[in-house]
Nucleic acid binder design. Structure first.
Lengths: 208, 208
DNA sequence: CCCTGTGAACCTGTTCACAGCG
DNA sequence: CGCTGTGAACAGGTTCACAGGG
C-alpha cells in the first residue's frame, strides 16, 4: 500500500524549497524546524510533520542540513533535473509566461510556444519561434515533453487539452476559467486569477 | 458571534458563480444541486452545504433559480458593483494583466498602473498611462481603491506592499514568490505560478 | 415524490506533547 | 540538553442520511 500524501503538504514543499534556496544563497548551512517555520509563518510542528512525510532528513539535536535537504526536496518534486515545458496560446498572458524569468530558477525550461492563429505562426516571442499547434504532437514526442501551460480562451481550452493529452502530455497548468474534463493519467492544475480576486473581494465585504 | 466561513467554500463560490453565469447565457433559469454539482465535478451535498452556508437560496422540490441566486452570490462576493483595481509593477506579467479581458466580466475594472522605473512613466499600457508609484497613495484615496495587483520582483514586493497598506488598500493579490509580512486589516492572496508547476511535476514523479 | 437544508458521523490534516537519539 | 520524529488528541471540512416543505 502506497501511503497517501496530503496535497497541502506538497504545496508547502514548494515553499520550503524556495526558502531553503534563499538561505543557501546567504551561505547558511543548517536550519531548525523552528527557524524555517518562523520565516514562513508556519509552526515548527507543521514543518517537521511535512518533512517527515517524505523521509528522515534532520538530525536530532541539530536540525536540517540545507544542502542535502534541498537536493532531496528537488528530487521529490521532480525538479532535480531541468524539465522542458511548452506553452499553448500566445496571447497577452502567454507572451508574459514565455518571457517569465522565474521558471528557469525552479528547474523549468520553456522550449516551445504554439498557437492556432495563422498570423502569429513564425513570429517570435522572446527567443522562441511560434509554431502551429498542428506541430505540437511531434514536438512533444521528439523532445519528450511532459508538462504544458495552457493559455487559450475558455472556449478552446477543453479541445486543446484533449489534444495535449493525446500527444502524451502528463500535466497541464491551465489559466482558463472553467473545469476541464480530464482523462486518467493526466494531472491538471488551474490558475484562475479572477477567482483569486473574488476571494479577496469577499474578505472585504465582511469588514466594511 | 459571527459564524466562521470555511475558506474552501468561498473558493468554490467563485466557481458556482461562474458556472451560473454560463448557464444564464444559455437561457437556463433553474438548476438542482445535483446538476450544478455534476458540471463542476463536485457532489450535490457539497453544493447544498456551501450555498446553505450563505443563506437559503433554493426551493425544496424544485432547485435554485439561477437569476436570483447569481445576484445573491455576487453580493456575497462583493462584486455586485464594479470594483476598481490598480496594478503595481508593469513588467511582462503586469502588462498582460492590464490587458486581460477576464476582469471586467467578473466585476473588476483596472483603472491605474504604476511603476518605479523612470523610463516607463508616461508610457501607455493598454489604454492606461503608467504613473510613478509616488502618485499611488493620492490616486488610491481619490478613487477609493480597495484592491491591488502586485507584480513587482520578489525583492521589492514587501516594500511596495507596505506602501499599499499605508495608502489604505485592503486587499493585495501578489504574483511574487515569498511570504509577505502583513499588517492586520489587509488581506493577501498569492499566485505562485512556478509553485503550481512544481506541484504538477510532483504528481509526475509518483507515476513514472 | 422531488429536492433542499442540516444534524450527525466521518475523515483528513493540524497541533500537541513527548519519547528518543545525538 | 536540543531538536527531530511521531503517536494521540483535536479541529475543520466533507459526506451521509434523513426530516420537512412544496
Amino acid at each position: 500500500m502506497t501511503k497517501p500524501i496530503p496535497a497541502p503538504a506538497v504545496k508547502r514543499l514548494s515553499l520550503y524549497l524556495h526558502q531553503l534556496e534563499n538561505l543557501a544563497e546567504k551561505g547558511i548551512e543548517r536550519i531548525s524546524s523552528k527557524e524555517l517555520a518562523k520565516s514562513l509563518q508556519f509552526t515548527s510542528a507543521q514543518v517537521r510533520r511535512d518533512l517527515a512525510t517524505f523521509g528522515q532528513f534532520g538530525r536530532r539535536g541539530v536540525g536540517y542540513e540545507i544542502g542535502p535537504l534541498t537536493k532531496s526536496l528537488r528530487k521529490i518534486m521532480g525538479t532535480d533535473k531541468t524539465r522542458n515545458i511548452i506553452l499553448i496560446g500566445v496571447g497577452n498572458l502567454g507572451r508574459a509566461l514565455v518571457r517569465h524569468r522565474g521558471f528557469r530558477r525552479r528547474g523549468f525550461l520553456m522550449v516551445g510556444a504554439f498557437d492556432i492563429k495563422p498570423e502569429k505562426i513564425g513570429k517570435k516571442v522572446g527567443s522562441l519561434k511560434i509554431r502551429h499547434i498542428r506541430q505540437m504532437p511531434r514536438f512533444v514526442k521528439n523532445k519528450n515533453i511532459r508538462l504544458a501551460l495552457l493559455t487559450t480562451s475558455a472556449s478552446a481550452s477543453q479541445e486543446v487539452f484533449d489534444q495535449l493529452a493525446r500527444a502524451g502530455i502528463r500535466g497541464v497548468l491551465s489559466f482558463a476559467p472553467g473545469k476541464l474534463q480530464k482523462p486518467p493519467g493526466v494531472a491538471i492544475g488551474q490558475v484562475d486569477i479572477a477567482a483569486n480576486l473574488e476571494q479577496l473581494a469577499f474578505s472585504l465585504t465582511s469588514e466594511e
